[in-house]
Design a binder for these strands. Structure first.
Lengths: 147, 147
DNA sequence: GACAATCCCGATAATTTTAGTAGGAATTGG
DNA sequence: CCAATTCCTACTAAAATTATCGGGATTGTC
């Protein structure tokens, strides 16, 4: 049940863009450095997010990437859907026709329940929620530093 | 976020054993036929479950497999733990030391929350719950059959 | 004791997915 | 024009997954 690096890195990239939302367009180079991820690979992932309309970009000198809307308006479910597709643990949860036993399979029901629980969390959390959590942590750490 | 066939097939096998709990030792051949899964491969998986104490076996003629305890006493979390290991979407959720940014990473917190939600469902569901759900469905289908 | 049925074990092969890398084209500001 | 940057497609190496295979060990039955 592991998430791939697409979802893992992609969410971190989006959080990075959210933290720098006020600064306008952000260089991929800088995101990659802060997140310690290959710039080329992140570049590939960000294009998925751009195609789906969550991110916009400017080419050429002074180019970069930015969120298309405020972090308060971006739910994690949107991000993960783009990068990972459905969070269903099994394909048959999304598509009954894939398995002819699906309609009478109690095992499937459990995976469906789990999918719904995951979706519920991702749906009810926005990038802004993560931003606040992260900045809160940092302040706490800075405080602790002086004790 | 896909489950591997280990967890998928393994849970179905355990449900099959639960449905046939009263009949004593069950042939792998029969489980494989009912579940439409390679007998050899299922044989491999059942050994994991045996080693971990959820299943017992008899060799030789009239051999087979059976649950070591009642379906009411087997939580899905036990089964999945054996077959899939942790359900954590990322390793850093289980082991802070794997990533030096973990303590100040808001993204990680979300995956942790999701892990806990999944665990909660698997922990609070027993094989018996699935048995009842499945037999209920079958009765419903049989009823519908005559309409 | 021979035999058939069954579980047991380790090796390995085939397939798919993942996680990138590479090369270069297109765009833009200065 | 040039440097910086995004954009696009193809390729590849490694890892994980999903089995398959051959043969050994055990047991009940005749």
């Amino acid at each position: 049940m592991r998430l791939s690096t697409k979802g893992r890195y992609g969410l971190r990239m989006m959080l990075d863009l959210a933290l720098n939302y006020e600064r306008g367009y952000i260089l991929m180079k800088d995101i990659a450095r802060r997140q310690e991820i290959s710039e080329r690979y992140l570049g590939q992932l960000v294009r998925l997010l751009k195609t789906s309309g969550l991110v916009k970009s400017l080419r050429g000198a002074h180019g970069g990437y930015a969120l298309t809307k405020s972090p308060t308006q971006i739910r994690l479910s949107e991000i993960i859907r783009v990068l990972e597709g459905s969070v269903a643990p099994l394909e048959c949860v999304d598509d009954l026709d894939l398995c002819n036993r699906a309609s009478r399979c109690a095992a499937r029901d459990i995976w469906k329940k789990i999918k719904e629980a995951m979706e519920n969390i991702l749906e009810s959390t926005t990038l802004q929620d993560l931003v606040e959590q992260q900045t809160g942590k940092q302040q706490f750490q800075e405080t602790m530093y002086y004790i």
